[in-house]
Design a protein around this nucleic acid. Structure first.
Ligand SMILES: [Mn+2]
Ligand SMILES: [Mn+2]
Ligand SMILES: [Zn+2]
Ligand SMILES: [Zn+2]
Lengths: 138, 138
DNA sequence: GGTATAAATAGAAATCATTTCTATTTACGA
DNA sequence: TCGTAAATAGAAATGATTTCTATTTATACC
């Protein structure tokens, strides 16, 4: 937690009970959570928290590199902790329990070369979502 | 166009002016289009077309394998023609002009093995979006 | 420890892409 | 040509997300 508070400071975000509580949720269990999920969990500790506050904090933590944002199949927002914020990598999430794990590996160069050769295009970004069953759920 | 009408029949979708017009748009220029984009183009040919009709036809064509669905950065729906519906592949789209091109190649096995070994998980699906600048725009 | 100030928050309200509903029209098999 | 299920238009609803504004709070400075 301490290091996350440093990140908040580095991003000029004040250390508030709401922000600490959101980070704490993800530290305890790193699953893909919707803003509603996060609020439900927050309500156990904080008597009140507005949904706009949840949305804002999640976006701030994403911008600070603490959370990774993704979209679920129903196109709604999901967030999970990202513990490798400064290196290029991807995330694996379990279809059943929604657990998220880091995939500190990317073999995208092959496709990139393929595209640059065959289409004569310039590849700039790629976005990969990997799903399956985690070790417990499979 | 003829072969697309076959696909409609195979999917028990009636051949209507609306559906033909939508397919025609994508055949003429294969770009990532939003439902609004599609309607704007349709209006040049068809006096009236309801937005719900556009949404429904796009979803039907996606289910029939004619269109590929994706999400833009603002999380809204986009569609483009998919000319390789029965083989696993990905799509490259130009950030500037939105042109979409098939990427008939996937080197996902490496990451998949990495995950199955390191996380002891079972990988089931992956979803890859590749963006950059096409040959004309770069 | 005060205090000033900008940042953060709650709650209500707005936004707007997408979906649902229903009456009418249309494609097409018999 | 006709009957019928499918397709459509237009209005309305939905619901996740964002905006707005008055109030509260964290913290830099003394
Ligand atoms: Mn990560
Ligand atoms: Mn394709
Ligand atoms: Zn699991
Ligand atoms: Zn281009």
């Amino acid at each position: 937690m301490q290091s996350y508070l440093q990140v908040l400071k580095a991003n000029r975000l004040k250390i508030t009970p709401r922000r600490k509580a959101v980070i704490d949720i993800f530290i305890r269990c790193n699953y893909r959570l919707s803003p509603y999920d996060v609020r439900a969990k927050l309500r156990r500790k904080l008597s009140t928290i507005g949904l706009p506050t949840v949305y804002r904090i999640l976006a701030e933590l994403k911008n600070a590199g603490i959370l990774a944002q993704s979209l679920s199949e129903d196109r709604q927002l999901r967030y999970a902790l990202c513990t490798l914020p400064h290196q290029h990598h991807h995330h694996f999430s379990c279809r059943k329990c929604k657990k998220v794990e880091e995939v500190d590996f990317c073999n995208f160069k092959g496709i990139s070369r393929f595209i640059e050769n065959k289409l004569n295009a310039k590849v700039e970004t790629h976005q990969l979502q990997i799903e399956g069953l985690c070790s417990k759920c499979k």
